[in-house]
Write a protein that binds this DNA or RNA. Structure first.
Length: 217
DNA sequence: AAAACGGGGGC
DNA sequence: GCCCCAGTTTT
C-alpha cells in the first residue's frame, strides 16, 4: 500500500478518535468483564439496566461466584440470552476466585479461557482496564473500515489483520471504541448519514455515490 | 459454515 | 412484524 494512502488512513483515524471518544466510566475489571459479557449482541441501554441491577445484589466476584443462576435471571433479563449469560458469568466468577485468586487476568490467553469470553470481550477488557493495545474488530469496525476504504475484506478477522498492518499500536484501543461510537451516530449500517459525516471527503463509499445520487440520505 | 441463544427498541 | 444489537459456543 502506498505510503500516502497509509498516512491518510491514520489521519482519518485520529480525526474519528478526536470526534467520537468512547464514554468509558467503569474501570473495575470485574464489572467491566461482566458488563461486557452482558453486552454481547445487546443494546447499551439494556446492558446498563441489567448490570446495574446485578451489581446491586452481587457487587463483587466473590458474591457472584456463590450465586445460583435462578437468582439472577430476573436481574439480567433485559440483556437477552439471560439463561446462558447467567450460567456463564457465575462460572467466570468461580474460575476467577479459584484459579486467579479473585483477580481478573490481564492477558489474552487467560481471558479467553473463561466461558463466554471471546476475542472481542477479552480485548475490550484489556484496553479498558489494563491499557493494553487491543483491537477487536466487531461489526462496526468491519463495516466502517471497508466503507471508508481502509481495507477490502470479507470477514472481521481479515479486517483485523489488515488494520493491524496499517495502524500503529497506540491507536488500536481508541480507534476501536471511537469507531463503535461513530458507527452508532453517523456511519449507520443501513442508512449512513453521509451528508453530516465529518470524514466523508476521505470516504471511498461517499465519493463513489456522491455524483450518482443527488444528496438523498 | 451454520445454528442457537433472546429481550427490547427502531422503523 | 421484521431487523438489529462492542458475540460466543456448539453442531
Amino acid at each position: 500500500m502506498a505510503e500516502t494512502n497509509r498516512r491518510q488512513i491514520i489521519f482519518v483515524c485520529k480525526k474519528i478518535i478526536d470526534l467520537f471518544p468512547r464514554s468509558s466510566f467503569e474501570k473495575d475489571p470485574f464489572r467491566v468483564l461482566i458488563a461486557t459479557i452482558l453486552s454481547q449482541r445487546t443494546k447499551d441501554e439494556n446492558t446498563d439496566k441489567a448490570s446495574k441491577k446485578l451489581f446491586e445484589s452481587f457487587p463483587d466476584v466473590y458474591s457472584l461466584s456463590m450465586a445460583k443462576p435462578s437468582q439472577i435471571y430476573d436481574l439480567i433479563k433485559a440483556s437477552g440470552m439471560y439463561r446462558q449469560k447467567a450460567e456463564r458469568i457465575i462460572k467466570v466468577s468461580q474460575i476467577i476466585v479459584e484459579k486467579f485468586n479473585g483477580k481478573i487476568p490481564a492477558n489474552l490467553h487467560d481471558l479467553l479461557s473463561l466461558p463466554g469470553v471471546g476475542r472481542k470481550t477479552a480485548n475490550i477488557v484489556l484496553y479498558h482496564c489494563f491499557c493494553q493495545p487491543a483491537l477487536a474488530v466487531d461489526t462496526h469496525v468491519h463495516r466502517i473500515s471497508n466503507r471508508l476504504g481502509f481495507v477490502k475484506t470479507k470477514t472481521p478477522e481479515q479486517t483485523e489483520e489488515g488494520l493491524k498492518k496499517i495502524i500503529p499500536e497506540k491507536f488500536w484501543g481508541p480507534i476501536n471504541g471511537a469507531m463503535v461510537e461513530f458507527g452508532k451516530k453517523v456511519c449507520l449500517p443501513r442508512k449512513p448519514k453521509c451528508q453530516e459525516c465529518p470524514v466523508n471527503k476521505y470516504c471511498e463509499y461517499f465519493n463513489s455515490i456522491k455524483f450518482s445520487e443527488n444528496g438523498k440520505n
